[in-house]
Design a protein around this nucleic acid. Structure first.
Lengths: 145, 145
DNA sequence: CCGAGTGGGTTGGAAATGCCAACTTACTTC
DNA sequence: GAAGTAAGTTGGCATTTCCAACCCACTCGG
């Protein structure tokens, strides 16, 4: 799809999870819904598109499709490590939506094991300082093809 | 658009920034490109779609469109606070793409002010513990409409 | 003064994608 | 034997996206 433009892992990541319904379907799987019908109902995606997205996520290694019954064949979708690695992004998007888009109190609230309502903080893994706008600069930049 | 499905700020956030090219355009603005032609070239988006996406981001308050020349009228796109708040998500997506999608060395590398290559860590803002899969649970969950 | 170049788009038509409802297959339960 | 459940697939239509070309207003070089 995005054959041209800057060489960039953001664009490549979006090739995999950037289509409509992909991240919302992933949200449901991460919330514990593993069955096609449940994911379809909770996302509101049409079944054909959802089938295509799930197939793509499975092909990309983000979900695992497992048969949990033989007769009749029934399948469930399980998160892989790649899906778990996306969770900070999903929660980040959620909190961004809460703050800049949503009207009213947040529809979904997480609690951390420490007992408090989860609010995400992002920091530099090396020095531990919280990430502030302008505290980074690029040392290498993908070329525009 | 997503009229049905679970009430969820992820879906609402994606209404604003989830369309094709929105996040890639935002990436360019955050990298310092502010002009339509430059954004068009560096993303590879077609000009009509890009114009529509930028308009939408401006309407949503994520970008600011500023006239920097009167005759002829010329505009630039500037990040607002909402755009800066998206930066952890953009960098998170980039690092996810680096790890799970991209082949070869990362095309773009950031350095933090501490002098080391930036790797993002996400943690609980309250207790400071790094976020591990399974260390959270939902205390409230958006209803499915 | 003339033509080329630049910036920021808009327009038209083809191609791709998405939506919805209905259908299918293969069981299980009432 | 009728209805329900699970996991999709199919057909037809509507909406988006893509691409190239065009437009307008100005500036610059000769």
């Amino acid at each position: 799809m995005a054959a041209r433009g800057r060489e960039c892992s953001i664009a490549e990541a979006l090739e995999v999870v950037g289509e409509r319904w992909s991240l919302v379907a992933l949200r449901e799987v991460m919330l514990g819904e593993r069955r096609f019908n449940q994911i379809a109902e909770n996302t509101g995606a049409s079944r054909d598109i959802l089938a295509a997205r799930l197939r793509k996520l499975v092909d990309a290694g983000v979900l695992e499709k497992r048969q949990y019954e033989d007769h009749p064949p029934r399948f469930e979708y399980l998160p892989t490590e790649a899906a778990r690695a996306l969770q900070p992004i999903l929660i980040g998007l959620m909190q961004w939506g809460d703050k800049y888009v949503h009207q009213g109190p947040p529809p979904t609230v997480y609690e951390h094991d420490c007992g408090e309502e989860l609010k995400l903080a992002t920091s530099c893994a090396h020095c531990g300082e919280p990430l502030k706008p302008g505290s980074t600069h690029t040392v290498r930049l993908g070329a525009v093809r």
